[in-house]
Simulated assay, not measured.
Amino acid sequence: MDFRYLGNSGLKISEITYGNWLTHGSQVENDVATQCVRAALDEGISTFDTADVYANTVAESVLGEALKGERRADLEIFTKVYFPTGPGAKNDTGLSRKHIMESIDGSLERLQTDYVDLYQAHRYDTETPLEETMQAFADVVRSGKALYIGVSEWTAEQIRDGVTLATELGFQLISNQPQYSMLWRVIEDEVVPTSSELGVSQIVWSPMAQGVLSGKYAPGQAPPEGSRAADEKGGADMIKRFMNDQVLARVQDLKPVAEEAGLSMAQLAVAWVLQNDNVAAALVGASRPEQVAENVKAAGVRLESDVVSRIDEVLGDVVEKDAGKTAETAPKQRMA
């Protein structure tokens, strides 16, 4: 496993980070989830990412139980706040001081830890003054409940405003967690340059485009039984933007590129996002322990420039690069 600094900080994290969105507490049984976490530890992964909203807090509990007994100083545990949890009452969502202060305590209890290494604003809250949010985060850091603060899916302008306030309040905002893959490159033109300037790293989710870049979905064919695209509980909705024959056909054309690089399709996808110098880690999940061992093989891989060029040629115009998509796909108001 290789390790990278997170933003302009002294914190090192594993460049393959284990995330439990859409799996723990929902798609896989708890004992299998624990096996996946153990497999991640065995492969040298030390960084684990979750959120209070995943399976409505259950994912945090499953991760906390799976990591119980591990030396805390050897781990980097990340979680998030914003989306509705609990019964979804009026203050059970957003980035108000009330919700942040209540949420961090709940997350720590479920994760069975005294602190998280990174506490992240899961989205930007348009209904709470940013000053209120950042003051609350400053107090969370000063209380020792979180060491650093991050955000997720913020625009370049929002990141700049957040870093400015964090600096004034005396704490570090060091990361952004956006979607990023060969197929979804909307952060490249604005978010990445701004983040690089400000000392903020990307922790990218869905580097395999919800599994599409693994090559398991063929054009003109029904998705395999048990796959995310066949999951009507939520997975199918998340992956649908990529599930068209033009995209799937282009992805199939990547197979010889991966073979010549000595990588599986999934490994090629993960290695590709790690070529970006502003990316500190790629988030990978798993529904089976063997998937973890397979994905970890992308760590430390350097793709030759001709391989990167061939990927661009193969995918062509199916790649989404519109920087406006970050704001377009963000919630315009709270969900409760």
Rank of each mutant, 00 (worst) to 15 (best):
Q291G: 14
V319W: 05
N276H: 15
E290Q: 12
V296Q: 03
V270F: 02
L303S: 11
D306E: 13
V301G: 02
A298I: 07
Q267C: 00
V273R: 02
A271I: 05
V314L: 12
Q275D: 08
L283Y: 05
V270S: 06
R302N: 14
V296G: 04
R288D: 10
N295K: 02
A293R: 14
L315I: 08
D277S: 10
G285A: 15
A286F: 00
K321M: 07
G300R: 04
D317T: 04
L274H: 04
W272Y: 01
A271G: 00
R288S: 11
A286R: 04
D277Y: 01
V292L: 02
L268Y: 03
A323W: 00
V270H: 11
D306M: 04
V319G: 10
N276L: 08
S309H: 12
V270G: 06
V308S: 03
P289C: 07
V314A: 12
A269K: 08
E320G: 06
E320C: 03
K321T: 15
V273E: 11
V279W: 01
L315C: 15
A298R: 04
D312P: 06
A286C: 13
D317N: 15
G285E: 11
V296I: 01
E304R: 03
A269E: 06
L283K: 09
G300P: 09
G324K: 14
I311V: 14
L268P: 00
N295E: 12
L315D: 11
A293I: 08
G324L: 08
N278F: 00
E320W: 10
R310V: 05
L315G: 05
E320L: 15
V314W: 11
L283R: 02
R302H: 06
S305Q: 15
D312A: 15
N278I: 03
A271L: 04
I311F: 03
A286V: 07
G316A: 01
Q267A: 02
V296M: 03
S309C: 02
V292H: 03
E290M: 07
L274E: 03
A281V: 05
V307Y: 09
A323L: 03
S309R: 13
V319A: 13
V307G: 14
G316V: 09
N276I: 11
L268V: 04
R288K: 15
D312S: 11
D306Q: 13
A293D: 09
K321S: 12
W272S: 01
V270D: 07
R288F: 02
D277C: 08
L303I: 11
R310K: 15
V273T: 13
G285Y: 01
E294F: 04
D277K: 02
A323H: 11
D322E: 15
V279M: 08
V301W: 06
L303G: 08
S309F: 02
